[in-house]
Design a protein around this nucleic acid. Structure first.
Length: 642
RNA sequence: GCUGGCGUAGCUCAAUGGUAGAGCAGCUGAUUUGUAAUCAGCAGGUUGCGGGUUCGAUUCCCAUCGCCAGCUCCA
């Protein structure tokens, strides 16, 4: 029999019969059993375990504990689901069904509408398919042949996709009598799908384009073990419990009223206090890094927005109003006023860089369907800044912003990911400017040795951007910080400075936010901390709980003393049992509960109980104040610039 | 904006083509209490808003507003 050389990942070469399957070959190479392979890498290319090896190659297993393996499992699960759906709804047409971050989906065109009540039926059908434990087959077909087959099955979407492909041959996967056009790879048998759950239904446009018909999408998730699936479902449950809309109400932070208008946040005292704490801290941090605070007007003449390109490119998102025959646009961004401040006098190269900072309130008309709690609203405040500098200073300024942003995220305990977005179709400015701007951003990232992902065509209309996505305690990503490089607006507004050569030069402008929108960031913070804010941020840091009303006088004195000492303190002097007061304070997630009974009155101190249940025992009132002040000082990591 | 679902007391949730109900919260009273819920009583609703069908609609139908899950878009 003819043989081939197969090189293992350990670098050992073994002779095996030609045509052996990748799976069999892996066994022969003695790849360990404990973490079984779900696919193989042949010469670096991911293939099915059933793929036969026809020539000398390198062979590695793809084991269960990798992201790629999960993707294959989920992709296979999506096929099983599609088979189940088509067997239950013969009129359903298949479209696409990929693995996604935490699961998979499949989009169908079907005259019947699916609802969540239908999911158990589909799941049951999937179980049947899995129980039959049929092999999953791959076939290579001539493209025309594939078009014929899918036409016969009236899979019009598949035919459309096939007609757009250029390859002469395509691969088709299937089990039993069900087939799908697919690149693969897949698991070798439907029985390998051991732990799955369908999680939802939703509409989705064909090919993601809102001009196309809407399909019905079914979401699901799958894991290699029931245990992993359970853990994932628990994580979803945890996320639901942390929902900032729910906590916002329970902690009495804010509400959104349909009376006042959708997407407009109404802050209650504690929510407003949180913002005050966050914003005074941020203002201080900016001042210490050489930023200057400015305040621009809420509306500017529409002429200004035409000049800047916003009217042309951003009009659908803006609110306009007319007064005395003059049209005004409510600002969706803060940059215009900042440029006017720059232009208000003649600037020298010695003045640069100039860093204008504004807690800028902006309005953006968002489509009704996208509004969501605090994270997607129509009126929000940005911790916005515009930096004007010479081209030479650009690199240092970008790096300075990145440092600032990362210091900030670290304070809150966020992990992060970085993306670089390049020029979109709808844009202003020359290609040359875009290239310079993109290079400047990229160079700063390279200099700092930060890894990043490129998002082609995702930049703002006036410039490319670096986005810092923060990852919260549940590993969800949020876009908050953004750094946008802009050569165009300085041109349009004729900004300039006098250089050392006595000539006029054009400054570069950087637009940037750190936390982004204060409302979104607050929403993210609420979920990140599950409402239990660290002491420095907590709107109420301590609450005085008297044991009986005989301590109310002392409680009142203590309250005044802590309040004037700068502690954010409340008091609960009600005629209730201590256990009841503790329960309420605990549900309000207040960091310290100050129990005040006979003993404390006698000693003239306090007995703090920490939110985590720990009893700190009787202490001097001043010692408690010091304790809180020490916790407040965690912001020094951002305030004390290295 | 699109697709689907939902809208009942401040909150969480029942119920029915025939007078809308509970727990928590609220109020009143009793209780004076030591680390996650003391007891009793009272009050609270044109069932999102507007039409229609019907003897009768909170329930069925239509429209509208809002919310939720996604899609598209995005700080």
């Amino acid at each position: 029999m003819e043989e081939i050389n197969v090189l293992s990942r350990k670098g050992e070469s073994t002779r095996l019969p030609k045509g052996i399957s990748a799976g069999e070959a892996l066994k022969s190479l003695g790849e360990k059993k404990g973490n079984p392979a779900v696919a193989a890498k042949v010469d670096g290319e991911l293939v099915d375990l059933s793929r036969s090896l026809e020539k000398d190659c390198t062979l590695e297993p793809l084991e269960q504990n990798s992201e790629e393996a999960l993707e294959i499992l989920r992709h296979t699960a999506s096929h099983v689901m599609a088979q189940a759906v088509q067997s239950l709804y013969p009129e359903a047409k298949i479209t696409i069904g990929p693995a996604i971050e935490n699961g998979f989906y499949y989009d169908f065109d079907c005259p019947d509408t699916f609802s969540v009540e239908d999911l158990p039926r589909i799941e049951a059908k999937m179980e049947e398919i899995i129980k039959r434990a049929r092999p999953i087959n791959r076939k290579e077909l001539d493209r025309q042949e594939a078009i014929r087959i899918f036409s016969q099955r009236e899979e019009t979407y598949k035919v459309e996709m096939l007609e757009e492909l250029e390859d002469p041959t395509v691969s088709v996967y299937g089990q039993e009598d069900w087939i799908d056009l697919c690149r693969g790879p897949h698991l070798v048998n439907t029985a390998e799908v051991k732990a799955f759950k369908l999680t939802g239904v939703a509409g989705a446009y064909w090919r993601g384009d809102e001009r196309n018909p809407m399909l019905q999408r079914i979401y699901g998730t799958a894991f290699f073990s029931k245990k992993d699936l359970k853990r994932h479902l628990q994580l979803l449950e945890e996320a639901r419990k942390r929902d900032h809309r729910k906590l916002g109400r329970e902690l009495d932070l804010f509400h959104v009223s349909d009376e006042a208008g959708p997407g407009l946040v109404i802050y209650h005292p504690k929510g407003a206090l949180l913002r005050h704490i966050l914003e005074t801290f941020e203002k201080e941090a900016h001042l210490r890094r050489g930023y200057q605070m400015v305040i621009g007007p809420q509306l500017l003449k529409t002429e200004m927005w035409k000049k800047s390109g916003h009217f042309e490119n951003y009009r659908e998102n803006m609110y306009f109003t007319e007064v005395e025959g003059q049209s005004y646009g409510i600002k969706p961004m803060n940059c215009l006023a900042h440029m006017l401040i720059y232009k208000s006098t003649i600037r020298s190269y010695r003045d640069l860089p100039i860093r204008y900072f504004e807690m800028g309130l902006v309005h953006r008309h968002e489509k009704s369907g996208v509004l969501h709690g605090l994270t997607r609203v129509r009126q929000f405040t940005q911790d916005d800044a515009h930096l004007l500098c010479t081209p030479d200073q650009l690199n240092d300024e970008i790096k300075g912003i990145i440092d600032f942003a990362l210091d900030m995220l670290q304070l809150f305990g966020f992990e992060y990911e970085i993306e670089l977005s390049t020029q979109p179709e709808k844009r202003i400015g020359t290609d040359d400017d875009w290239e310079r701007a993109t290079n400047a951003l990229e160079k700063a990232l390279l200099d700092k040795e930060i890894s990043y992902k490129i998002r082609a065509g995702e930049g703002a209309f006036y410039g490319p951007k670096i986005d810092i996505l923060l990852k919260d305690a549940l590993n969800r990503r949020w876009q908050c910080s953004t750094i946008q490089c802009d050569f165009t607006l300085p041109e349009r507004f004729d900004l300039n400075y006098i250089g050392a050569d006595g000539e006029k030069h054009r400054p570069v402008m950087l637009h940037r936010t750190l936390l982004g929108s204060m409302e979104r960031f607050l929403g993210v913070l609420i979920e990140h901390y599950a409402g239990a804010f660290p002491t420095w941020l907590a709107p109420v840091q301590a609450i005085i709980l008297t044991v009986t009303d005989r301590q109310n006088n002392y409680g009142e004195q203590l309250y005044q003393r802590l309040l004037s000492g700068g502690i954010r303190v409340e008091k609960d002097l009600r005629n209730e049992k201590l256990g009841y007061k503790i329960r309420e304070a605990q549900l309000q997630k207040i960091p310290y509960m100050l129990v005040v009974g006979e003993r404390e009155v006698e000693a003239g101190g306090v007995s703090p109980r920490r939110r985590d249940g720990k009893d700190l025992k009787l202490m001097e009132t001043d010692d408690f104040t010091r304790l809180v002040m020490e916790e407040n000082a965690v912001t020094d990591t951002v305030l004390k610039v290295k």
